[in-house]
């Protein structure tokens, strides 16, 4: 199958040059290679420029509310674990308003793929600081510069218990597509944080700025099973602003939430018939 079947054909809302075009292409390519029936895919997004990616899909999907895509996606997966559930949103959506859900989804190790298009700015609301904006960045809401340290989604995900933690770059869709594909096939909570530049509101972290800093972990024989090394690489940019690694930082195998839950392990609850009167009577008997 080709990736065309996953595309709705709708015109994207993004500005010319927006990084999210590359992300959309990379997801479609990964799905095409995996050849998952489109009726078994549920794409859940939040709110923001990047969350509008839902409109690009011809699969099932929910374009939810700001910051809540992970709980929605979790609910879908808990009810029907046979579905391939992909969450996609932005840095404000996932690391700002939805940060609590991010941590808890990671620690649950539910089989979700979470794609974050990180442009270090609020685009849809026309250019305010985001939780990943760097110190000193001047935005509409911080005319004298950002005064808070940025969230590091990679080290946060590793410490919270995510079992697949990667970073890609929308300017390199083939590499990104590989990371997404492996994230989808990974059994467990997979985070793919993507440097996806905002060409309209973020004039600091541009394609050029990123290209000067990025390098690939696979070129340095990084061992993603080594948690300490993963933290070292995940925090490299925090310590040395001149280098930003891309690729798979951390990967491990832990039991899935779905495998531990006493109900889900017996199969999806969707499609089960309601209880019989005899079953309800048996429950009532406990109270006699």
């Amino acid at each position: 199958m080709t990736d065309a079947q996953y595309r709705s054909g709708e015109k994207p809302v993004w500005c010319p040059g927006c990084g999210d075009y590359g992300v959309s292409a990379a997801i479609m390519k990964a799905l095409g290679e995996l050849n998952i029936p489109k009726n078994d895919i549920m794409v859940v997004t939040g709110i923001g420029c990047s969350s509008a990616i839902s409109g690009q899909f011809s699969t099932y999907g929910i374009h939810g509310i700001h910051g809540r895509l992970l709980p929605i996606a979790t609910g879908v997966k808990l009810a029907n674990p046979k579905l391939t559930v992909i969450g996609a949103g932005g840095d404000g959506d996932g690391y700002g308003i939805g940060a609590a859900h991010f941590i808890h989804a990671a620690r649950r190790n539910i089989d979700l793929t979470y794609i974050v298009m990180d442009n270090e700015i609020y685009g849809l609301t026309t250019g305010q600081a985001s939780p990943t904006s760097l110190i000193g960045m001047k935005t509409k809401s911080t005319p004298f510069g950002v005064t808070e340290n940025p969230i590091n989604p990679l080290s946060l995900a590793i410490s919270a218990g995510a079992t697949y933690v990667a970073r890609g770059f929308s300017g390199d869709p083939n590499h990104l597509s590989m990371l997404i594909k492996n994230g989808i096939t990974h059994k467990g909570f997979a985070l793919i944080d993507i440097m996806s530049p905002c060409v309209t509101f973020n004039h600091d972290n541009t394609y050029d700025w990123l290209r000067k800093r990025i390098y690939k972990l696979e070129d340095q024989q990084h061992d993603p099973s080594d948690m300490a090394k993963a933290f070292e690489k995940a925090t490299e940019f925090d310590r040395d602003g001149s280098k930003m690694p891309l690729g798979l930082f951390y990967k491990t195998s832990k039991p899935l939430y779905e495998e531990l839950d006493p109900v889900i392990m017996e199969g999806p609850v969707v499609g089960r018939s309601p209880p019989t009167t005899a079953e309800v009577e048996a429950v009532l008997k406990e109270y006699m």
């Binding site: 549920m42 709980p71 808990l78 609590a100 017996e266 969707v270 089960r272």
Partner: peptide, 26 residues
């Protein structure tokens, strides 16, 4: 008896998971 039960991080997650599960058909 066949009910998925989830204690969540907050009530926002509880209702959004409920919406997700209902969308899936439960």
């Amino acid at each position: 008896l066949g009910v998925v039960v989830k204690q969540t991080e907050d009530e926002i997650a509880a209702i959004n998971m409920t919406i997700g599960a209902a969308s899936a058909g439960a």
